[in-house]
Write a protein that binds this DNA or RNA. Structure first.
Length: 677
RNA sequence: GCCAAUGUAGCUCAGUGGUAGAGCAACGGUUUCGUAAACCGUCGGUCGCCGGUUCAAUCCCGGCCAUUGGCUCCA
């Protein structure tokens, strides 16, 4: 199962690890890295022609990239594992051998490196490539276990027998050195632990994690559905219970933003091509947008149809002339016919190009629309900061292999807002946005987070993106200062900025260890100018505002996906799709009236309350309610009726005893109002 | 988009070269039960879609679609 996802971080370290850093490998990493060598040994016994590339330890195990005509499938795992066991049992030492570069090159060319023996004609090409990456002066070493000789800096465990517990897990493809231009290799994943118990615990943990998977819980609770046949992949339908989550989040955002001085706007889902040409999104982002819609009027349709017919006729005429020519043997003049065809063809192109044929795009982001709202009315410095907020629905054409439940979708609702401000106002505004993040983290009990501050690379200054190096540096300094001043947990990542400015991504981890980029916060000093956005300053001159893009709750889709796993579907009362269920014991009329009265009272107070008055034993009703993850169950029998009580039971926490009805209702209302955890 | 695996009832899963089963859910009854499942019955499937091999395909082969695990990408 995928534990690390949505990472902006490249899995492969961009910089080579130094030998000192490698020496710091933990015991477990050494075991795993050594296990990768053992796996390579096993694969070579089965397929001696295999060529290996890189085999590092990773977060939950290890992999080794291999090039092999035979496609390894999970069916091959048992026999590979069998060979691995033999190698472990042989208990070969991992011998370190220091060699010269010349020696290493010679051993690669003979096919010896990454092999069990010399393999004439089968050059260890990837090892040769790896050698080139080793800086001059750094010692070059081999590690040898049994017959397997590998170019490797180590470190390893002492002997193959030290690998006590391992299992192969999956196959994937990967590009050599992670570069799309390089050949694809088969990446065989496995994991290893210090002992069998820990290995088993790991797989048990994976099973547990599966139970919290938002896709599973989403289906169980009836939160969302993805109808790939009729709606399309990556475009979730929010079912009634999931919509509750959506609307509660919107309510939270609207209240928070209102208090922070935001104003709300609404915009269409489409815009003309000019919008995205102006914003500069098209050249950078076209692949991620749905293809444009081409608008033609009826007149043009018929013209194009007519042309199609004329073109076909012209082509047939040429065919006929050619056929006659062949048949009769007499030369014929085709010039005229071809000229006619070409004229028709060019007419088609012209019609396609003429004005009036508009391209519309589904919006992939809300900012350009908001910029046009800024532009809709003249602005003065008194209007700033202007904070435009919208839960805007965007569409992104994510690659098919990227779609993943609610976490990576093609239709998304962003908790979006754009803050237009002056450079002087920037720090305070940016800081207020950060405060908002922290407020939300507190409400949801998100303790582990990191803000990734993405800046442009040095070589990118003034070239790749916005051609104003000074502005870049100045803005980055402002952001950095705010982050430092607010003592927020952040890391700086060069080279990953948006094309219009530096950005901050907020990374969080769900309880099952999944990593998410939840929210984003970007500085834009480029696009407002492209749209000619200006305000009149005190000195009566026109100036361009800065813009902060921010989405503390990210998108509904990803945030709710995260929340489902975070809470394992056991939402706090304020979020729970079904907050209260009243369960009756027996069918006495007075009892039913009492129960129905409670349901009405709670619903009148906007509490999501249902009644289960069915003809089932109370045990069954409770089992149903527990399974549906109803937050609060109010069990009512004869005893409660007489005393004016309700017996409270909380989901996952069991019975809480009988209490006065008024007291319970009041407590429910307070817990919801406070968004109690 | 690339590599691999998977696709049987709403859900979880059996199964076979001779057109399919179980449990739960749903529906209809019976049951009147105090904190996680009372009993009986009924309904439910073009075995992902399209094509091929075959007397016969859910099963074998090919293509497509979708999902999953990775890779690449991610404003």
């Amino acid at each position: 199962m995928k534990v690390k996802i949505m990472s902006d971080e490249n899995q492969e370290p961009k910089e080579r690890k130094t030998l000192d850093e490698r020496e710091k490998m933990s015991e477990l990493e050494r075991i795993r890295h050594s296990c990768a060598h053992v796996m390579a040994t096993a694969i070579l016994r089965l397929w001696p022609e295999a060529q290996f590339a890189a085999g590092p330890p990773v977060e939950n195990g290890f992999y080794y990239d291999v090039d092999l005509p035979h496609r390894i499938s999970p069916e091959d795992f048992p026999k590979i594992e069998e060979e691995m066991k033999k190698e472990v049992k042989a208990n070969h030492p991992f011998e370190k051998i220091i060699v010269t570069r010349e020696q290493a090159i010679a051993d690669s060319e003979s096919g010896r490196l990454g092999g069990l023996s010399e393999r004439p004609g089968n050059v260890s090409k990837f090892k040769l490539g790896n050698l080139e990456a080793i800086p001059v002066g750094e010692p070059i070493s081999y590690f040898k276990n049994g017959d397997f000789l590998d170019l490797c800096a180590g470190p390893h465990v002492m002997r193959t027998g030290n690998i006590k517990a391992f299992k192969l897990t999956s196959v994937a493809s990967a590009y050599y050195k992670g570069d799309e231009k390089n050949p694809q290799l088969q990446r065989i994943y496995g994991t290893a632990f210090k002992n069998k118990t820990e290995l088993e615990e790991y797989f048990t943990m994976l099973e547990e994690a599966k139970k919290r998977d938002h896709r599973k819980i989403g289906a169980e609770m009836g939160l969302f559905a993805i109808d790939t046949e009729y709606v399309g992949p990556g475009m979730p339908l929010w079912l009634p219970k999931g919509t509750v989550l959506v609307e509660e989040l919107e309510k939270l955002a609207k209240e928070t933003e209102f208090a922070a001085g935001y104003v709300r706007v609404r915009t269409p889902h489409l815009a003309k091509e000019k919008m995205y040409k102006t914003s500069g999104h098209l050249p950078y982002y076209a692949d991620s947008m749905f293809p444009p819609m081409l608008l033609t009027d009826e007149n043009m349709e018929s013209k194009l149809c007519d042309l199609d017919k004329r073109r076909e006729d012209a082509e047939m005429e040429i065919e006929r002339l050619v056929a006659d020519w062949k048949k009769s043997g007499k030369t014929a003049d085709l010039t005229e016919a071809y000229e006619s065809l070409n004229t028709i063809r060019s007419l088609g192109g012209e019609i396609g190009e003429v004005e009036g044929r508009e391209r519309y795009y589904l919006k992939a982001m809300n900012c350009p629309h908001h910029h046009r709202i800024f532009a809709a009315e003249p602005k003065s410095y008194r209007d700033l900061p202007l904070r435009l907020a919208e839960y805007g629905c965007c569409y992104r054409y994510e690659q098919s292999g990227e779609l993943f439940g609610l976490m990576r979708v093609r239709s998304l609702n962003m908790n979006d807002a754009h803050i237009y401000c002056t450079a002087e106002q920037f720090a305070a505004e940016f800081n207020a946005v950060n405060e908002m993040y922290l407020k939300y983290f507190k409400i949801f009990g998100i303790e582990k987070y990191v803000m990734r501050f993405s800046t442009h690379g040095k070589e990118g200054l003034g070239k790749k993106y916005v051609d104003d190096p000074e502005l870049w540096l100045k803005t980055e300094d402002m952001v950095r200062q705010v982050l430092i001043d607010s003592k927020i947990n952040y890391v700086e990542v060069p080279n990953e900025a948006a094309f219009y400015g530096p950005k901050i991504d907020v990374q969080v981890w769900s309880v099952i260890g999944r990593e998410f980029t939840l929210a984003t916060n970007q500085v834009d000093f480029a696009v407002p100018a492209k749209f000619g956005l200006q305000y009149k300053d005190r000195d009566n001159t026109m100036k361009t505002p800065l813009c902060i893009h921010r989405a503390p709750l990210g998108t509904h889709e990803r945030f709710i996906g995260f929340l489902i796993e975070h809470y394992a579907g056991n939402f706090p009362l304020w979020l729970a799709p079904e907050q209260v269920r009243v369960l009756t014991i027996g069918e006495d009329e007075a009892l039913l009236n009492y129960a129905k009265g409670i349901v009405s009272e709670l619903r009148a107070a906007q509490v999501r309350c249902e009644g289960d008055f069915a003809n089932d034993p109370i045990k069954a009703k409770i089992a149903n309610a527990e399974q549906a993850r109803v937050h609060t169950m109010l069990v009512i029998g004869g005893r409660d009726l007489e005393a004016g009580n309700v017996s409270v039971r909380l989901h996952g926490k069991g019975p809480q005893g009988a209490k006065k009805k008024e007291e319970v209702v009041a407590d429910i209302m307070t817990a919801i109002k406070e968004r109690r955890a």
